[in-house]
Design a protein around this nucleic acid. Structure first.
Lengths: 110, 110
DNA sequence: TTTATATATTGCAATATTACGATTAATATT
DNA sequence: AATATTAATCGTAATATTGCAATATATAAA
C-alpha cells in the first residue's frame, strides 16, 4: 500500500526513519554537502550547483527545512539557506545512537 | 518522475542516499535494532517481533541483505539473520563523514 | 507603476515503495 | 512418500516520491 504503519513503531524508530528518508535522495545529500562546503548562506546558486530544475530544488529545500536541518532567510528577492547547526547536532545524536549499536555487541554469532 | 537522476551525483552521494533509504522505513530500523539487541542470530521471531506480515518482513530483510547490512544463514527450515558487523562498520564510516561535516564549520552565518 | 529577478506553489505524469494474500520452494518430521 | 514448517517469490492494490512546465508570489530596480 506504500504506507508505513508508523503506529506500530516507537517514536524513536519513526524519527530515525524520517531523518534517514531525508538523506535518502542524492540531491538532498548534495544540497547539504554544498551548504556545509561554502560555509555561508547560499543565495541562489543551488539550482546551478545541482543539475535539477528550480521547482525541484525548491521542493527538496522545503523538505530539509521542514525537518529543521536547514534555515532560510529572505534577503531581498532571494532566499539564503544554511545549515541549522543546533538541529544538525541534535539529529546527529539520534543517528549516532542508532549507528553505534555495534559497539555494544560483544560477540558475533555467524 | 519518481526516478532519481543518479548520474548527476557523485558515487559517494549516491551511496549515502542508498544506505539512508534503507534506514528510511521504521520496520527496517526496528529489524536492525532487534538484531543488535538479541545479539545472536534470529530465526523466525522477526515476524512476531515486528507486527507485519511474513512476506513484508521477508522483503525488508531482502533489502537489508542486498545492501550487505545483514547476513542470513539457512538453518534447517528456518533462516537465521544477524548483523554483518564488518559491513556495518564500513557503512558507519561513510555515514559518519557525512554526519560530522558540521565539525569543520568554523562560524555560522545566520 | 512597470519591469526584472528569484523563489514558491500547483498540477500532473512517471516511477518507486509498501503491504499482503496466494503460492512456491526447501527442508524436517512422521 | 506424505505432511508440516518456514521463508521466499509473485501478483497486485494503494500510496509516496520525483521531476518539471506553468503559474503565482514577492521584492528590487527602473
Amino acid at each position: 500500500m506504500g504506507l508505513a504503519k508508523t503506529e506500530m513503531f516507537t517514536d524513536q524508530q519513526n524519527e530515525i526513519a524520517l531523518i534517514a528518508k531525508a538523506f535518502g535522495h542524492p540531491a538532498r545529500v548534495a544540497i547539504l554537502q554544498h551548504l556545509f562546503k561554502i560555509n555561508t548562506c547560499v543565495c541562489g546558486d543551488l539550482v546551478n550547483e545541482i543539475g535539477l530544475a528550480q521547482p525541484t530544488i525548491s521542493q527538496h529545500l522545503k523538505e530539509l527545512k521542514l525537518l529543521g536541518l536547514i534555515k532560510g532567510n529572505v534577503e531581498g528577492t532571494s532566499v539564503c539557506y544554511c545549515i541549522d547547526t543546533d538541529n544538525w547536532a541534535k539529529m546527529k545524536n539520534l543517528m549516532s545512537d542508532f549507528l553505534n549499536q555495534d559497539l555494544d555487541l560483544k560477540e558475533g554469532c555467524c
